[in-house]
């Protein structure tokens, strides 16, 4: 997988899915339109400032709350290349991986990084560099199964390949 590079948007603990994407807009399924509301409940400036490749850095329990896949869809559509948090709501974690959005656990990163810092991340190894402060960090490596999904670009391309090669009952 390629090295990711982008600026950091830093948040605290317990950023829930209602704040990442509001429930009244769940009828929208077009990803680009979903992307227009990313992080609306926590940081209205985010959507104006986020550029492709930028990363979200957060405290514990990022994406806690509802099962809405929209929370992962909206971040990807807004151009976010990865989310690095102290821990994740487990459904958000699965949803992000399924969409091919790398999500990594790094306990201390959010306390060392500032908004706007340039970060590079190797999703395969979990190595993080804050280019702005020249600090190095190590995220927990992802499991083999999760990396396999990310290498396919998400669960959809992976399942399409499975359906082609083995049929639906495998």
């Amino acid at each position: 997988m390629t090295l990711l590079r982008g600026r950091a948007f830093v948040y605290g603990a317990n950023i829930d899915t209602d704040q990442i994407y509001p429930a009244p807009l769940l009828t929208i399924t077009d990803a680009d339109k979903v992307g227009e509301h990313a992080m609306e409940g926590v940081d209205p400036a985010f959507i104006k400032e986020c550029r492709p490749g930028d990363m979200i850095v957060a405290g514990t329990n990022f994406g806690c709350g509802s099962s809405r896949e929209h929370a992962a869809v909206t971040l990807r559509a807004a151009g976010v290349s990865a989310v690095i948090a102290a821990s994740f709501g487990r459904i958000f974690f699965r949803n992000a991986i399924n969409l091919g959005l790398p999500v990594l656990i790094c306990r201390e990163l959010h306390t060392h990084v500032s908004r706007g810092d340039w970060l590079t991340l190797d999703p395969a190894t979990g190595q993080i560099v804050d280019e702005t402060t020249r600090q190095h960090f190590q995220a927990e490596p992802l499991s083999g199964y999760v990396l396999d999904i990310l290498r396919h670009g998400g669960i959809k391309p992976m399942m399409r390949e499975l359906m082609r090669t083995k049929g639906p009952r495998s």
Partner: peptide
């Protein structure tokens, strides 16, 4: 246990 939409879709498939 709860999952998102695409996880559930993989159950519909397999």
């Amino acid at each position: 246990t709860g999952v998102g939409a695409t996880d559930l879709a993989t159950i519909l498939l397999t």
